[in-house]
Protein backbone atom coordinates (compact mmCIF):
# COMPACT_ATOMS: atom_id res chain seq x y z
CA UNK A 1 0.00 0.00 0.00
CA UNK A 2 2.73 2.48 0.91
CA UNK A 3 4.56 1.99 -2.40
CA UNK A 4 1.31 2.96 -4.17
CA UNK A 5 1.17 6.11 -2.11
CA UNK A 6 4.82 6.87 -2.79
CA UNK A 7 4.31 6.23 -6.53
CA UNK A 8 1.34 8.63 -6.56
CA UNK A 9 3.31 11.31 -4.72
CA UNK A 10 6.33 10.90 -6.96
CA UNK A 11 4.29 11.10 -10.20
CA UNK A 12 2.02 13.89 -8.96
CA UNK A 13 4.57 16.11 -7.25
CA UNK A 14 8.18 15.13 -7.72
CA UNK A 15 8.20 14.59 -11.48
CA UNK A 16 4.95 16.38 -12.25
CA UNK A 17 3.78 15.72 -15.77
CA UNK A 18 3.16 19.41 -16.61
CA UNK A 19 5.77 21.34 -14.68
CA UNK A 20 8.73 18.97 -14.68
CA UNK A 21 8.20 16.79 -17.75
CA UNK A 22 6.55 19.68 -19.68
CA UNK A 23 3.83 17.47 -21.15
CA UNK A 24 0.24 18.73 -21.70
CA UNK A 25 1.17 22.41 -21.74
CA UNK A 26 -1.46 23.59 -24.23
CA UNK A 27 -4.52 22.49 -22.23
CA UNK A 28 -2.76 23.84 -19.13
CA UNK A 29 -2.60 27.25 -20.81
CA UNK A 30 -5.93 26.96 -22.62
CA UNK A 31 -8.40 25.77 -20.02
CA UNK A 32 -7.02 27.43 -16.92
CA UNK A 33 -9.08 30.64 -17.20
CA UNK A 34 -11.48 29.56 -14.47
CA UNK A 35 -11.32 26.99 -11.70
CA UNK A 36 -14.54 25.25 -12.65
CA UNK A 37 -13.47 24.58 -16.24
CA UNK A 38 -10.01 23.58 -14.95
CA UNK A 39 -11.60 21.03 -12.61
CA UNK A 40 -13.79 19.76 -15.46
CA UNK A 41 -10.76 19.42 -17.73
CA UNK A 42 -8.79 17.74 -14.94
CA UNK A 43 -11.54 15.18 -14.37
CA UNK A 44 -11.91 14.48 -18.10
CA UNK A 45 -8.13 14.06 -18.50
CA UNK A 46 -7.92 11.82 -15.42
CA UNK A 47 -10.66 9.60 -16.81
CA UNK A 48 -8.99 9.44 -20.23
CA UNK A 49 -5.47 8.92 -18.87
CA UNK A 50 -6.41 6.12 -16.52
CA UNK A 51 -8.43 4.33 -19.17
CA UNK A 52 -5.72 4.93 -21.79
CA UNK A 53 -2.99 3.53 -19.52
CA UNK A 54 -5.02 0.37 -18.95
CA UNK A 55 -5.89 0.01 -22.64
CA UNK A 56 -2.32 0.72 -23.77
CA UNK A 57 -0.94 -1.89 -21.38
CA UNK A 58 -3.47 -4.42 -22.67
CA UNK A 59 -2.67 -3.53 -26.30
CA UNK A 60 1.05 -3.73 -25.66
CA UNK A 61 1.06 -7.10 -23.93
CA UNK A 62 -1.80 -8.89 -25.71
CA UNK A 63 -1.56 -7.54 -29.23
CA UNK A 64 1.65 -5.77 -30.14
CA UNK A 65 4.29 -7.89 -28.43
CA UNK A 66 2.86 -11.35 -29.33
CA UNK A 67 2.57 -10.29 -33.00
CA UNK A 68 5.87 -8.29 -32.90
CA UNK A 69 3.99 -5.23 -34.11
CA UNK A 70 5.60 -2.90 -31.63
CA UNK A 71 6.37 -0.46 -34.47
CA UNK A 72 2.62 0.19 -34.55
CA UNK A 73 2.62 1.21 -30.87
CA UNK A 74 2.00 4.95 -31.28
CA UNK A 75 -0.64 4.42 -33.97
CA UNK A 76 -2.73 2.02 -31.88
CA UNK A 77 -2.31 4.07 -28.72
CA UNK A 78 -3.61 7.18 -30.47
CA UNK A 79 -6.51 5.20 -31.91
CA UNK A 80 -7.54 4.01 -28.45
CA UNK A 81 -7.05 7.40 -26.85
CA UNK A 82 -9.08 9.08 -29.59
CA UNK A 83 -12.01 6.75 -29.08
CA UNK A 84 -11.91 7.15 -25.29
CA UNK A 85 -11.88 10.93 -25.74
CA UNK A 86 -14.76 10.78 -28.18
CA UNK A 87 -16.73 8.76 -25.64
CA UNK A 88 -15.87 11.25 -22.87
CA UNK A 89 -16.97 14.15 -25.06
CA UNK A 90 -20.33 12.57 -25.73
CA UNK A 91 -20.74 11.77 -22.06
CA UNK A 92 -19.94 15.31 -20.90
CA UNK A 93 -22.16 16.82 -23.59
CA UNK A 94 -24.98 14.71 -22.19
CA UNK A 95 -24.13 15.01 -18.49
CA UNK A 96 -23.33 18.74 -18.14
CA UNK A 97 -23.74 21.01 -21.19
CA UNK A 98 -22.41 23.92 -19.12
CA UNK A 99 -19.08 22.21 -18.63
CA UNK A 100 -19.11 21.15 -22.29
CA UNK A 101 -19.57 24.82 -23.23
CA UNK A 102 -16.76 26.05 -20.97
CA UNK A 103 -14.28 23.37 -22.09
CA UNK A 104 -15.08 24.07 -25.71
CA UNK A 105 -12.40 23.04 -28.22
CA UNK A 106 -10.06 21.72 -25.52
CA UNK A 107 -12.23 18.63 -24.85
CA UNK A 108 -11.64 16.92 -28.23
CA UNK A 109 -8.07 18.19 -28.04
CA UNK A 110 -7.33 15.79 -25.19
CA UNK A 111 -6.63 13.29 -27.97
CA UNK A 112 -3.62 15.29 -29.00
CA UNK A 113 -2.72 16.05 -25.39
CA UNK A 114 0.90 14.94 -25.22
CA UNK A 115 0.54 14.10 -21.51
CA UNK A 116 -1.93 11.30 -22.29
CA UNK A 117 0.17 9.70 -25.01
CA UNK A 118 3.37 10.49 -23.08
CA UNK A 119 2.16 8.62 -20.00
CA UNK A 120 1.06 5.65 -22.08
CA UNK A 121 4.48 5.45 -23.74
CA UNK A 122 6.31 5.96 -20.41
CA UNK A 123 4.33 3.07 -18.99
CA UNK A 124 5.61 0.84 -21.74
CA UNK A 125 9.15 2.16 -21.30
CA UNK A 126 9.19 1.51 -17.56
CA UNK A 127 7.62 -1.93 -18.18
CA UNK A 128 5.16 -1.48 -15.32
CA UNK A 129 2.69 -4.27 -14.57
CA UNK A 130 -0.99 -3.64 -15.25
CA UNK A 131 -1.82 -2.31 -11.79
CA UNK A 132 1.26 -0.08 -11.63
CA UNK A 133 0.75 1.39 -15.09
CA UNK A 134 -2.85 2.31 -14.23
CA UNK A 135 -1.62 3.78 -10.94
CA UNK A 136 1.09 5.69 -12.81
CA UNK A 137 -1.54 7.02 -15.28
CA UNK A 138 -3.84 8.04 -12.43
CA UNK A 139 -0.96 9.64 -10.48
CA UNK A 140 0.25 11.78 -13.35
CA UNK A 141 -3.37 12.76 -14.15
CA UNK A 142 -3.72 13.81 -10.50
CA UNK A 143 -0.58 15.93 -10.88
CA UNK A 144 -2.00 17.41 -14.08
CA UNK A 145 -5.28 18.31 -12.35
CA UNK A 146 -3.47 19.72 -9.31
CA UNK A 147 -1.35 22.04 -11.45
CA UNK A 148 -4.34 22.97 -13.61
CA UNK A 149 -6.47 23.89 -10.55
CA UNK A 150 -3.68 25.85 -8.86
CA UNK A 151 -2.82 27.69 -12.06
CA UNK A 152 -6.53 28.44 -12.69
CA UNK A 153 -6.80 29.92 -9.19
CA UNK A 154 -3.80 32.15 -9.91
CA UNK A 155 -5.16 33.23 -13.28
CA UNK A 156 -8.54 34.11 -11.77
CA UNK A 157 -6.72 36.39 -9.35
CA UNK A 158 -4.47 37.86 -12.07
CA UNK A 159 -7.52 38.55 -14.24
CA UNK A 160 -8.45 41.16 -11.59
CA UNK A 161 -4.92 42.61 -11.37
CA UNK A 162 -3.81 45.82 -13.10
CA UNK A 163 -1.33 44.00 -15.38
CA UNK A 164 0.65 46.41 -17.63
CA UNK A 165 -0.59 46.40 -21.22
CA UNK A 166 2.54 44.68 -22.54
CA UNK A 167 1.95 41.68 -20.26
CA UNK A 168 -1.85 41.51 -20.32
CA UNK A 169 -3.38 38.20 -21.45
CA UNK A 170 -1.14 35.21 -22.09
CA UNK A 171 2.31 36.74 -21.36
CA UNK A 172 1.44 37.11 -17.67
CA UNK A 173 0.06 33.57 -17.73
CA UNK A 174 3.39 32.31 -19.06
CA UNK A 175 5.27 34.22 -16.33
CA UNK A 176 3.00 32.75 -13.68
CA UNK A 177 3.30 29.15 -14.84
CA UNK A 178 7.07 29.49 -15.07
CA UNK A 179 7.21 30.73 -11.46
CA UNK A 180 4.96 27.82 -10.53
CA UNK A 181 7.42 25.45 -12.22
CA UNK A 182 10.21 27.16 -10.26
CA UNK A 183 8.35 26.38 -7.05
CA UNK A 184 7.74 22.75 -8.04
CA UNK A 185 11.48 22.25 -8.48
CA UNK A 186 11.65 22.27 -4.70
CA UNK A 187 10.38 18.71 -4.80
CA UNK A 188 13.22 17.57 -7.09
CA UNK A 189 15.47 14.99 -5.56
CA UNK A 190 12.78 13.92 -3.07
CA UNK A 191 14.16 10.46 -2.43
CA UNK A 192 10.83 8.82 -1.97
Amino acid sequence: MSELLLLLISTALVNNVVLIKFLGLCPAMGVSKSMDSALGMGMATTFVMTLASAASWALEHWLLEPLELTFLRILTFILVIASVVQFTEMFIKKASPGLYQSLGIYLPLITTNCAVLGVALLNVQQAYGFFWSVAYGFGSALGFTLVLMTFAGLRERIALARVPAAFAGSPIAFVTISLLALAFMGFSGLNV
Binding site: A183, F184, G186, F187
Partner: peptide
Amino acid sequence: WVIRSLGGYPEGVAFAILLMNALTPI
Protein backbone atom coordinates in the same frame (compact mmCIF):
# COMPACT_ATOMS: atom_id res chain seq x y z
CA TRP B 1 10.01 19.85 6.74
CA VAL B 2 9.46 17.46 3.78
CA ILE B 3 12.06 19.24 1.64
CA ARG B 4 14.53 19.53 4.53
CA SER B 5 14.25 15.87 5.52
CA LEU B 6 13.53 14.11 2.23
CA GLY B 7 14.27 16.60 -0.53
CA GLY B 8 17.35 17.49 -2.51
CA TYR B 9 17.80 21.02 -1.15
CA PRO B 10 18.99 21.62 2.45
CA GLU B 11 16.60 24.59 2.98
CA GLY B 12 12.91 24.36 1.89
CA VAL B 13 11.29 27.53 3.29
CA ALA B 14 11.54 29.50 0.03
CA PHE B 15 9.99 26.67 -2.02
CA ALA B 16 7.29 26.05 0.58
CA ILE B 17 6.29 29.74 0.58
CA LEU B 18 6.01 29.81 -3.23
CA LEU B 19 3.99 26.59 -3.32
CA MET B 20 1.56 27.85 -0.70
CA ASN B 21 1.36 31.24 -2.47
CA ALA B 22 0.21 29.27 -5.50
CA LEU B 23 -2.48 27.56 -3.40
CA THR B 24 -3.63 30.83 -1.75
CA PRO B 25 -6.43 31.54 -4.27
CA ILE B 26 -7.85 28.04 -3.64
